[in-house]
Every structure is written in C-alpha cells, then in structure tokens.
C-alpha cells in the first residue's frame, strides 16, 4: 500500500476521467445490431390503409431496400423535431428506402392529429401498448433502427435524428450519394 497508493489513485482518477469524456454516458448499445430484426405484424394507422393495406407485416417488406424504423409518439417532444426531416427524406428517396413509423404508447386520435400536423406520408403502424418498443429494446422515444435488405439490424440511434445522423445511417445501409 505504501508504494502502490499513487497507482490506485491514478487508476481511479483515470477511470472517472474516461467516464466523464464519454459523449453520452447513458447511451446503451443495442443487442439487436447484426441480428435479424424482430418481425411483427401490426395494424396501420388509418391514413395509410389505402396504399398499404389494413395491416403491415415487416417480413413482407424486407428484401428490396433498406428499412428505417422510427419509434415515435405524439406526446414525445423530440419526435416533433425529427418528424419534418423524416418526411422530407421519405418524399425524396421513397423509391430507394422504406421509412416505417411505429407509433407507441399513444392514443389513435392523438397519433392522427400528429400525422396531420406534420403531413406525414410514410406509413406508421399503431402499437398503443408499446410492446414493439420492448421487442426492439428501446429505452425511450424517439429511436430509429436501420435494417438492411437481408432484414438484419445495422444500427440503432436513440434520441432524435438530425440530417448528419440520418445520412450516416443510410450510408451504412449502402445508400450512397443521398
């Protein structure tokens, strides 16, 4: 102890210093990355039924293009920041990727109001209890997952996406030059 205490103090200091440098100490890596995305079948919200049918099954969509799954809720404030961005990307690149919203822990009326407010045209499924959130291991809303053409989860982003994050996620999915 007489000789080793400086090492111990330094180790402790180093550990905490490293701990303080982490960009986001609360970030949780997703266990799903690299694994097949949990499949699901859920009712679509009313505005999308005409185009996509009453229910949407994830498995049927996998294959032709990468999928961006976005968990959102009308009561979530950061979701309001990212909704216009997602909508813009969907309008521009809908032939090369699928953006799929999952509305969790919400009421149908509030969700529809949110969709109207931001003019969201990408399809969203309705999951009032939030079971899908647990299936995907989310720890809040919004969260965004990228799934490649084989149906594997490539990346998870917790919190609202900005343009840079979104581009980076899509680059990982093989969509260059967006």
């Amino acid at each position: 102890m007489r000789r080793f205490w400086p090492l111990l103090v330094l180790a402790l200091g180093g550990l905490f210093w490293w701990g303080l440098q982490r960009p986001d100490p609360n970030a949780l890596p997703s266990v799903l990355v690299g694994k097949p995305a949990p499949t699901f079948e859920r009712p679509l919200l009313q505005p999308y039924r005409a185009e996509w049918g009453d229910r949407l099954e994830l498995g049927e969509q996998v294959g032709s293009r990468p999928i961006l799954i976005n968990f959102w809720a009308s009561w979530c404030l950061p979701c309001r920041d990212e909704a216009p961005l997602l909508e813009a990307y969907w309008r521009r690149y809908r032939d090369r990727l699928l953006i799929l919203g999952v509305n969790v822990q919400d009421t149908e009326a509030k969700a529809l109001e949110f969709i109207r407010e931001y003019g969201l045209s990408f399809p969203s499924v309705f999951d009032p209890k939030g079971t899908l959130g647990v299936d995907y291991g989310t720890y809040g809303v919004p969260e965004t997952f990228v799934i490649d053409a084989e149906g594997k989860v490539l990346q998870r982003h917790a919190g609202p996406v900005n343009e840079a994050v979104l581009r980076d996620m899509l680059r990982k999915a093989g969509l260059e030059g967006l």
């Binding site: 103090v9 402790l12 200091g13 905490f16 210093w17 701990g19 303080l20 100490p25 609360n26």
Partner: peptide, 24 residues
C-alpha cells in the same frame, strides 16, 4: 458528474471534473 447512471444524477457540466480533481 452523471458519470454513473442514477435517478439522482444531474450532470452539471464541468463541476463534475472539478470535484474529481478535488477528490484526487
């Protein structure tokens, strides 16, 4: 400092590092 996850952690910026320095 918010260095560990806790209900009570507040994460108040540079104050954490100062307390670390004082602790050491």
């Amino acid at each position: 400092s918010g260095v560990v996850q806790s209900v009570h952690a507040f994460g108040d910026g540079p104050v954490g590092s100062l307390f670390l320095a004082f602790l050491l």
